[in-house]
């Protein structure tokens, strides 16, 4: 068969060939070239990418929930429009990422099934609740800020479709963090109650945001290999430090404080020192014991199950009606 679907690799080569393919792959990665879907790639590279891209996609669509929680209650029409557009972007970003994962031969249905049955994860940050309107701002400023710090280097990831999806996502997300900052600024400059609301949100979201960069480098299971494959470009601790350094002056300009008494500038390192992160909380949330794990997955599953009859109806309709379409060239129609 000469027609090969994008996303389906070539027939498995023999052992002798594998070595040659591996050499080509290694050379491409070393030369900072992109690996494309139908290139030969090591099984472990493919598996790592599927796991990471799927987790990223799942995070986008689960991440819609805590923010969508406030669409109906947004306190001005301008804020309502911004929030709705942002949550919509997250659905779109989930779509881009599922598409990238699909180029590796794993369908969206399979990935969603793994999410719904707990076999694939999403970012733990979305297992925290949005208790007040200020949480929408804190998510934009801190959570999206941390995500962007993580994502910008992914635009140069060695796997082409993932890198391209990230370029589009980073471009579109540039407003996400800014709207969060602006929202918090309005609260901070507002009434006493509004300012207290903003400070409370930052107090609750700061530490979980730092955890978003993952465990410390010496305890990170996948980091070294991912760096070697250029899926990842910087270590967890490097990115976390970069984020802290960015946030400190921003918090100051917001007129809000960060809830870490040990946070201070270290002249010698040229970075801010910060207090110890409570990794036991991180592990607990990861294990499923966070405040919203059950709620998030239940809602996701319910949406999928409630939509089953709709998806089926459309598929059956498509089977009944050979859809008329307009060709790409003038006068073409089939």
């Amino acid at each position: 068969m000469t027609t090969v679907l994008p996303g389906h690799g070539p027939e498995a080569p023999g052992e002798a060939e594998t070595e040659a393919f591996q050499a080509v792959f290694d050379a491409a990665v070393a030369a900072d070239e992109r690996i494309e879907p139908r290139d030969w790639m090591p099984d472990a590279y493919r598996a790592t990418l599927v796991r990471q891209i799927a987790q990223h996609a799942h995070s986008e669509i689960i991440g819609m929930q805590p923010e969508a929680n406030w669409i109906s209650r947004a306190p001005s029409l301008r804020r309502k429009a911004i929030l709705l557009a942002k949550v919509q972007d997250e659905a779109g970003h989930g779509l881009y990422l599922y598409s990238a994962a699909e180029t590796l031969g794993t369908g969206r249905d399979e990935l969603l099934d793994k999410l719904h049955t707990g076999r694939q994860k999403y970012s733990s940050i979305f297992n925290y609740p949005t208790l007040t309107w200020a949480d929408v701002g804190a998510i934009g400023w801190l959570v999206d800020g941390a995500a962007i710090t993580n994502q910008v280097p992914l635009c140069r990831c060695s796997y082409g479709p993932y890198a391209r999806a990230m370029i589009r996502i980073c471009k579109e997300e540039s407003f996400h963090q800014r709207q969060g900052y602006e929202l918090l600024l309005a609260l901070s400059r507002g009434t006493e109650a509004q300012k207290a609301m903003a400070q409370d949100a930052v107090d609750r979201w700061w530490w979980p945001s730092l955890m978003m960069f993952g465990p410390p480098d010496d305890e990170s299971a996948h980091s070294a290999q991912s760096m070697a494959w250029k899926i990842k470009r910087h270590s967890n601790d490097e990115l976390r430090q970069r984020f802290v350094d960015i946030c400190v002056p921003q918090a100051e300009s917001l007129g809000l404080t960060l809830p870490d008494p040990e946070l201070r500038w270290n002249e010698e390192r040229g970075h801010h020192d910060f207090g110890p992160i409570d990794w036991s909380e991180f592990q607990q949330v990861l294990k499923g014991n966070g405040p919203c794990n059950e709620q998030r997955i239940s809602q996701r599953r319910a949406a999928h199950e409630n939509g089953a009859w709709v998806r089926e109806a459309a598929a059956v309709y498509a089977g009944k009606h050979a859809t008329e379409h307009t060709g790409a060239r003038n006068g073409e129609a089939a």
Binding site: L84, A85, Q88, G92, L95, A303, G307
Partner: peptide, 21 residues
């Protein structure tokens, strides 16, 4: 807007949000 996060398929999330916007 109440559909956000509840639509039958991701593509439809985007479509309904567009109409709402």
């Amino acid at each position: 807007g109440e559909w956000a996060g509840h639509a039958p398929e991701l593509e439809e999330e985007v479509a309904l949000a567009n109409i709402a916007l």
